[in-house]
Simulated assay, not measured.
Amino acid sequence: MKALAARRHDRRAPVVLLLLALLLVGGLYAALQPAPASAAPQAASANDVTNGEKLFAANCATCHGMGATGTNAAPSLVGVGAAAVDFQVGTGRMPLAMSGPQAQRKPVVFTPEQISQLAAYVASLGPGPAIPTAEQVDASKGDPANGMAIFRTNCAMCHNAVGAGGALSQGKFAPNLWSTSNTHLYEAMLTGPQSMPVFNDANITPQEKRDIIAFIRQQGGTQPGGLSLGSLGPVTEGLWAWVVGIGLLIGAAVWIGAKSS
């Protein structure tokens, strides 16, 4: 009996139990850990960076300078990341056709492969936001209701309650979002182009960005009923009510006056 008790109280038993507990906790953590929201972005090859540098020197260095360090005509691109390049070049805003209050969307100059190469070159100059993956911008995995709440808190004051766009000060404007691709919507939130603020993952999480994209996709420029009035919200609605309402009151007053005379 004493021999059995000695085995049960071996001094090495606590160490063994601790190791077993650690293995159990580690196994449970690995089994129950949620899947990552997206795969890591594919790393650019050295050939992409080299070709991107050549494209940059031929098309962008005039304004942004060799090495993208910036000039009096355009800012430095060091540290803006691949996402900023993909948005600006992929929407045709860059190369800039002419100076003005803000760069406007126009037909894209480069092929998708060339845009990827330019993005790879700029990304190699310093760390910055990467181009989002297909999963990150998948609207089917977003919650439009939550996206609506976030959009109307952070975006509606410029882009209007349903993303139809609107005027800003000094000749600037917030564009209509209905025809913007999911990837470019995500990149705009991530990089803050033009007058738009940057919404990094601490401000709006990746899932919330996807929720916003789902909400915008759900709008799609459609009107559930009645006149859209440009989908500009209370401004046009108030103007319409004022013009029609006052017009009807004036018409009624004239008719009553005519009848009484």
Rank of each mutant, 00 (worst) to 15 (best):
W178C: 12
W240Y: 09
S260V: 15
T50S: 12
C63I: 02
A119V: 10
Q218A: 15
V16S: 02
H159D: 12
Y186K: 01
S99V: 04
A119S: 02
V78W: 08
I115A: 03
M1D: 10
I256G: 10
E113G: 01
A119K: 00
V254A: 12
G251A: 11
L23P: 10
D143E: 12
G26I: 08
P14T: 00
L248E: 10
D86Y: 12
S140D: 12
L18C: 05
G65S: 11
E187P: 07
P224V: 00
S140N: 13
S99C: 05
A61R: 04
T222G: 04
L248S: 04
G257Q: 15
G27D: 04
W255I: 09
G65W: 14
P234Y: 07
L20Y: 08
S261E: 05
E208P: 14
N72Y: 06
E237W: 13
V235M: 11
P144N: 13
K259D: 08
L229G: 07
D48M: 13
V108Q: 08
G163W: 07
M94S: 01
A103L: 05
G192D: 01
R105V: 00
C63S: 04
L17T: 08
T236M: 14
A44H: 05
N176P: 02
P193N: 00
P175D: 11
A74S: 13
L249E: 15
A214V: 15
M157D: 03
L248W: 06
T50V: 09
K209F: 10
A149C: 06
T62D: 09
A37G: 09
G79P: 03
K172D: 06
Q102Y: 01
V80K: 06
A57V: 03
V108L: 01
G81L: 12
L227S: 11
A57E: 03
A202P: 08
V85T: 07
G100W: 06
G247N: 01
V162F: 08
A43H: 07
T205Y: 06
L239A: 10
Q104H: 02
G225K: 11
A35S: 10
E208H: 12
G220C: 03
N72A: 15
G142I: 00
G142N: 02
L24K: 10
F87P: 05
M196N: 14
N200K: 03
A21R: 05
L77G: 11
E53N: 08
A84Q: 07
P206N: 12
E113F: 08
A149S: 06
L55Y: 04
A134H: 03
A120P: 11
L118N: 07
G165N: 05
K54S: 03
I212R: 03
N72T: 14
T69R: 14
